[in-house]
Nucleic acid binder design. Structure first.
Lengths: 206, 206
DNA sequence: TTTAGCTTGTGAAGAAATTCACAAGATCGT
DNA sequence: ACGATCTTGTGAATTTCTTCACAAGCTAAA
């Protein structure tokens, strides 16, 4: 299959969100132009993005909202439940465990892990906190798909190494540091410091 | 000035982080190749990125770590204190207020705002929580530079509108929704749901 | 059935970002 | 002082991403 750009996948994700709004409002069709307006892009871009996966629209009419939603969910792999573990039971871990958007979209949080014995055995927003030493065993048993890393920056790489060794193939990193992983493991980083610096740059350059 | 790509700014931000590590380890020079290895890019990319702003290296030697750090901080606008307010005193707001990386890099959090009277008057990780009704007046007085939006998705656009009306020119949005703002206002969105969907896509497409 | 009015899907064109490749400097050891 | 060895800075080439532009298809009204 032709390689799909990261930016395309992000836009598909955005389109899906608008479609869900539309669906909730009971509208049945939408044009690429409307989708583009919502997403801050162009109608050509929307159509090109979709064209990588097939042709889902009707000329002269637009796209069926429920049909396109379904297809986008399939494309994005949201047809199934993904099992998630959180590494690091701190403030960010708590905010994520609490975040409704996860469960809503089929991301089920199994457990959180922490190295601090004080935290182990407690709950984090209703999710059990376990000792990091159990990670490998638990992963073998429960087969989580995705690891969310919310440990401090200086522990992030070793935590990722642990996660990779346990056999997990996808990670979402919140530590403000660049992580290195084997090619068959997908890592995405959310770096708030970097975003803020982007704003800082924008503010001084105008 | 030639327009600088977003991706370039993000990389500069990453380079700065490595340089700080290097500085802490007492190393005095670094090559574009080493910087590239850390950042998961190529040496040509590093040199090209820097070349938009001048030439900071010495042929045959590399870059002076302290000098390049200083220059990058200048370029990114980190030479000054940025004043930040947080909109929404929930879990994410708390995690951010608690996050050391902000202060460390010159982002000073002035206050949090919330519409819930229960929360107003309390503290969020040591930061005062104020009523949203005071926003406009406070902004006129305290001149914050950046608004961080951590309200629920369905309130995010109206919160941004408020912030824009008050005169703030930069916002960092954590609500999982696309926001629209005038051209002179820079908005960056951190969308965890989108990142997870990116992982989901990666997992099903291999 | 025909026509007018939309909107899709997609090659081709254009723009933007990345990588190549090498001349030009700088250092170091002899 | 000279040659060997590095590494930068940067036009040019290449690759990737976005936008253009239009034929093709669908609907609705007359």
């Amino acid at each position: 299959m032709k390689r799909i750009a990261d930016s395309t996948v992000r836009r598909l994700s955005a389109y899906l969100r608008f479609l869900e709004d539309f669906e909730a409002r009971g509208l049945s069709t939408i044009s690429s132009d409307e989708l583009a307006r919502q997403g801050g892009t162009t109608s050509a871009q929307v159509r090109k993005d979709l064209s990588f996966f097939g042709s889902f629209g009707k000329r002269g009419l637009g796209y069926s909202v429920p049909e396109l939603s379904t297809r986008l969910r399939e494309i994005l792999g949201l047809g199934r439940e993904w099992r998630v573990i959180i590494l690091g039971a701190g403030k960010i871990g708590a905010a994520l465990a609490h975040y409704e958007g996860f469960r809503q979209r089929g991301f089920q949080i199994l457990a959180a892990y922490d190295s601090n014995p004080e935290k182990v055995g407690r709950k984090l927003e209703g999710i059990p906190v376990r000792g990091i030493a159990h990670l490998e065993r638990d992963v073998a048993k429960e087969k989580p798909d995705i690891a969310v890393i919310t440990v401090p920056a200086d522990a992030a790489q070793q935590t990722l190494d642990l996660v990779v060794r346990a056999g997990i193939k996808a990670a979402l990193n919140f530590a403000p540091t660049q992580l290195h992983a084997p090619a068959d493991v997908t890592v995405k980083t959310v770096n708030m410091a970097m975003e803020l610096e982007g704003l800082s740059f924008a503010l001084v350059n105008r």
